[in-house]
Structure formats: C-alpha cells, structure tokens
C-alpha cells in the first residue's frame, strides 16, 4: 500500500463523514423552532463546506481551491452579519414602540445597540417580563410619531 493510496482513503473517509454531518445539520435547520436556529445552522454548514474545500484542494492537488475556501469564509461571515443587522433592527424597533406607548418600562428585551443600555448596569430584567398578551394591546401606537420638518421645493 503506497502513501498516495492511503491519503486517498483517509480523505475520502473524512469527506464522507462531513457530507453526512451536513445532512444532519440540515435536518436541524428545518426543525429549528426559530429564525436564530436556522442562521446558526447556516453558519455551521458554511464551516463544514470550508473544511471540505480545504480537504479537496489537497486531494485533487488543485491549489486554487484554497482561494475559493477563503472567499467562502468571507461570504459566510458577511451573511451572518447582514442577517443580524436586519433582524436586530426590525425587532428592536417594534419592542421599543410598544413599550413606550403603553407608558411602562420596556419589556425584558433590552436594546443592546442603544447607547444607554450596557451589561454593566443593573437592570431588573427578571421582574419585567410581561405576558405575551400585553404586547398586543396598542396596535395603533405607530400613528403617533413626532412631526418632523420635511423640506419641500
């Protein structure tokens, strides 16, 4: 048994295990109860695909596949970042609107991006989790926005 053949067997076995793992993660991403599970699974699939490309570049002796692995790593990072920006933005906004209109403390979901909230300050977040029903009370709260001057030409 030569060394090349041994490398072939080793890499083929590793690639097979990784393919099976990708399939299992895909099942988890379908089950995943919330959007966060799905994004997490996409991130993990990205990692596994990067490893697969790195192994393939050694197995096939094609050095340009490593370039593709680096680009894939960059794209998977960018994906998580932009999805995070979209979801953090949207849900933060709705939370604060509902809480402020009702004249009570904002619900336990604290805005991390806002300036005044940080992990160092003490907040009684445990006590201030409202029931899910109380969030539905003021649906029309968005109509009362402060008037801003819009320039007309």
């Amino acid at each position: 048994m030569t060394v090349d053949l041994a490398y072939q067997y080793l890499f083929t076995g590793a690639l097979t295990v990784m393919a099976v793992l990708i399939g299992i993660i895909l099942i988890r991403s379908i089950i995943g109860p919330r959007i966060i599970d799905r994004i997490l699974c996409i991130n993990m699939i990205g990692t596994l695909v990067i490893c697969t490309i790195a192994i393939l570049s050694q197995m096939l002796d094609e050095s340009y596949l490593t370039d593709i692995a680096i680009i894939y790593a960059m794209l998977s990072f960018l994906t998580v970042l932009i999805l995070a920006s979209v979801y953090i933005r949207r849900l933060n906004l709705t939370d604060e609107d509902e809480g402020m209109k009702a004249g009570e403390q904002p619900p336990g979901v604290q805005a991390f991006g806002a300036q005044d909230v940080s992990l160092g300050q003490t907040k009684e977040t445990q006590a201030s989790v409202p029931a899910a029903g109380s969030l539905q009370q003021d649906k029309n709260s968005r109509e009362t926005v402060p008037q801003r001057e819009v320039p007309h030409d």
Partner: peptide, 14 residues
C-alpha cells in the same frame, strides 16, 4: 452577533 439576535428577539430571555 447571533447571541445579539437571540437577546433582542426572545421576549423570555430573562
């Protein structure tokens, strides 16, 4: 950032 999404979207995070 994933944990930030979780903290910001889960109403029962506490």
């Amino acid at each position: 950032f994933l944990s930030r999404i979780e903290v910001n979207t889960n109403p029962f995070i506490a």
